[in-house]
Design a protein around this nucleic acid. Structure first.
Lengths: 205, 205
DNA sequence: CCTACCGATCGGTAGG
DNA sequence: CCTACCGATCGGTAGG
C-alpha cells in the first residue's frame, strides 16, 4: 500500500525518509564497524542493522561485501590525497609547508577520517589483488607528493635525512597514532603534529 | 595398528614424529596465518592443515581459537620485553643504550618475531577484555621501561622531547615498519634503526 | 590426535 | 528495499 507512505495531509513537508545517499550511510556505518571489529569480524547483518535495513538490502547498493570495503578504503585515501594536494598548492616555505602537511594529515586521520583512514591503513590488505593494486597506486601517489615536501626540507637544511626510510618512518609515526590516540584524552591532533615536527626537524635557528 | 608407527628395524633412530611441542608448531603456524590473513580470516582448518592435523585436533592443545591468538600474542610481547630488559641491564651511556634498544626492537620485529609481533600489534585487539587487559599490562610495562631510556636521553641533552607523545611517535615509527619492510629489499632492520636514531636524536657534537 | 558430526552463522540471491 | 531462503563454512565436541 504505497499510499500509506505518502501522507497528503502535510503537503510540501520534508520526506519521511530521505532516500538519497543510503549508499553513503552504508559506507559510513561499515567504516566504523570495520575499524571496531575488523573486516572479517563484521557481518553484512551488522552493517544492515546499523543503517536500519534487512540483511539482504546492502546488496542492492553494493554487489559484494568486498565492494563495501573497497569503497570505504578509497574514500579514505582519496580525501587524504586531496587534502595533501591542497596544502601543497599554497606556496609556502619548506618548513611551514611540512608543518601544514603534518597537521592536515593528523586532523583527518584522528578526526573526521578516523574510520576511513583506519580501514585504508589496516584493512585494505584484505582486498583482492586487483582492488588492492588500485589502492596501492593511490598510496604511492600520496608518498610521492610527500617525498617532494621532504626534498625541499632537506634542501633548506631543515631535515637531515629525506631518504625513503626516513619518509616511511615519519609517515609511520603519524599513522600509528590512530592506534593510541584518545578522543577524550588530553592531547589533540595539532599538538601531536607539532611534537613530530619538532622531533624530526633541525632546531629553528 | 600402532605397530606401523614403531619401526623396529632402526633402533635408537630419531622418532618418526617427535610429538614434543606440537603446541609450539600450532602457535608458529597460527602466527604466520594470522599475520597473512588476519585472525578472523584464518580458520581452525587452515591452522590444522599447516601442521598436518585434522580440523578437530588443535582443540586437544588449546581450548579455543581465542586461546591460540592469546598464546601468539603473549609470545610476541614477552620476548620483546625480555629483549628490552636485557639491553637495559648492560650499563651503557644513554645514547648507546637507546641505539641498542632500537636495534634490538627492529631485529625482532622484522626478523624472527615478525609473525608474533605483528599479531600482538595488530590482532590482539580482537581478544576479549580479560585477555586484552593482560596484554595491555605487558605493553604498558614495555613502554614504561622505554620511557626510562628516553628520560636519560633528555637528561644528557641527546633528545629534546621525552614526553608521552614523543615516546608514542618513536615507537610508532618502528612498529609501522612491519607494514612496509621487505625481507628481500635493499634495507635491513639495523639500518632502519640507525635512520630513526639519527632522525630524533640531536646531532652528535 | 582422528572420525564424524552438530548447531549456528555467513555472504549472497530470487522474486517481488 | 524486504521476505524467504540456500549452500557453504565455521568453531567446537563426543567418543574413541
Amino acid at each position: 500500500m504505497e499510499v500509506l507512505n505518502k501522507p497528503d495531509s502535510l503537503s510540501a513537508a520534508a520526506p519521511v525518509a530521505p532516500d538519497v545517499n543510503r549508499r553513503g550511510d552504508i559506507i559510513r556505518a561499515a567504516g566504523r564497524l570495520f575499524r571496531q571489529k575488523g573486516y572479517n569480524g563484521t557481518t553484512i547483518r551488522d552493517i544492515a542493522d546499523a543503517v536500519n535495513m534487512r540483511s539482504g538490502s546492502p546488496f542492492y547498493h553494493f554487489k559484494s561485501k568486498h565492494e563495501i570495503l573497497f569503497s570505504v578504503t578509497t574514500e579514505g585515501i582519496e580525501v587524504m590525497l586531496k587534502n595533501l594536494e591542497m596544502v601543497i598548492a599554497n606556496a609556502q616555505p619548506a618548513r611551514e609547508c611540512f608543518e601544514s602537511c603534518m597537521t592536515t594529515h593528523m586532523n583527518y586521520l584522528l578526526g573526521p577520517g578516523r574510520d576511513f583512514a583506519w580501514v585504508m591503513l589496516y584493512e585494505s590488505r584484505l582486498l583482492d589483488p586487483t582492488e588492492r593494486a588500485i589502492v596501492h597506486r593511490m598510496s604511492a601517489r600520496y608518498e610521492a607528493v610527500f617525498s617532494g615536501v621532504l626534498d625541499r626540507l632537506a634542501a633548506s637544511g631543515d631535515l637531515l635525512d629525506a631518504s625513503t626510510i626516513a619518509r616511511k618512518l615519519i609517515l609511520g609515526a603519524m599513522n600509528w597514532s590512530a592506534q593510541w590516540y584518545d578522543d577524550k584524552g588530553a592531547s589533540n591532533p595539532q599538538a601531536i603534529a607539532q611534537h613530530l615536527c619538532a622531533l624530526v626537524l633541525t632546531e629553528k635557528n
